[in-house]
Amino acid sequence: MKTEEILQLNKAGWEQSAERFFGRTALPELGPFAPTENDLDLFGEVANKKVLDIGCGSGHSLQYMGNNGAKELWGLDLTKKQIETAQELLQEQRALVMLYESPMEENPGLPRDYFDIVYSIYALGWTVELEKTLTHIHRYLKPGGMFIFSWEHPMHDRIKRVDDSFILDKSYLQEGPEYNEAWNNTVIIPHRKLSTYINTLVTVGFEIEKVIDDVVLPNVATEGNNHRWYSVDKAKLIPATFIIKARKK
């Protein structure tokens, strides 16, 4: 399936399902069972910074940045519904707000060598063309600017629950687009090894500062949690989330 076809399929899936994700996995959260920005302080001081959110969703991470003093709030997202929601959420921000409905594989008119911070919270893994997307991100950043992203750990969907056990259900080594089980096979998300993310960042010119796959478990699991996609039982075996901080040379 071609890139354009996958993007159209995923856009349709998100337009239909966007509302159930409004406000979920947004800063200061970085992903399921992961330490938060409050724990890690990856971004540091964001006051007066120009920030760009790749896959901004409902705008809640941009709202967090604005509430912490960011000077300009830019975002792009594949879906019209998400952008409209973000525009409404951010309308009272004092910072400049610029939002674009666009796939991350394309530059919808974003400036080059402009941003202090680019980030993507649980969105980058949707890209159909990773190197192309990371090349755009590298160009958006000022020299010395930082890029931080989180995504589902690539081992997470390789392991499946069967009765009271977990089994390795798919090859970690086999990369490529796959219909996603968590979305009932209605969208396509490429599977990539962790090393692919790291090596592609290096290829396009980033320096890796941190790779984090620590697990933070709740004191008490909610009822029925162990039957969910992100379960405490699975998180005891394998991280649900990985986080990478990189910098433009």
Rank of each mutant, 00 (worst) to 15 (best):
M1R: 03
E4G: 04
K11T: 09
G13N: 06
E15R: 09
Q16L: 09
R20C: 08
F21E: 07
F22Q: 06
R24V: 14
T25H: 12
A26S: 15
A26M: 09
L27S: 08
E29S: 15
G31Y: 13
F33H: 15
A34G: 14
A34Q: 11
E37G: 11
D41M: 09
L42W: 11
E45C: 11
A47P: 01
A47L: 04
N48E: 13
N48D: 14
K50I: 11
V51M: 04
D53C: 09
M65N: 03
N67L: 12
N68Y: 13
G69T: 07
A70T: 06
A70D: 03
E72K: 00
L78N: 05
Q82D: 11
Q82R: 05
I83H: 04
Q87E: 12
Q93G: 06
M98H: 08
L99P: 02
E105D: 11
E105R: 07
L110R: 00
D113Q: 03
Y114N: 03
Y114G: 03
Y114W: 08
D116L: 04
Y122W: 13
A123P: 02
T127G: 11
K132M: 05
K142L: 12
P143W: 09
G144K: 04
F147H: 02
W151Y: 14
M155T: 07
M155F: 15
H156W: 15
D157N: 10
R161Q: 15
D164T: 13
F166N: 10
F166D: 06
L168F: 12
D169M: 03
D169R: 08
K170R: 11
S171Q: 06
L173I: 11
E175G: 01
E178L: 10
N184L: 12
I189W: 12
L194Q: 13
V202N: 00
V204Y: 01
F206C: 00
E207A: 03
E209N: 04
K210N: 10
K210L: 10
V215D: 09
V216Q: 13
P218H: 10
V220W: 09
E223L: 14
Y230D: 14
Y230F: 15
V232D: 03
K234Y: 08
L237Y: 12
T241R: 01
A246F: 04
A246R: 00
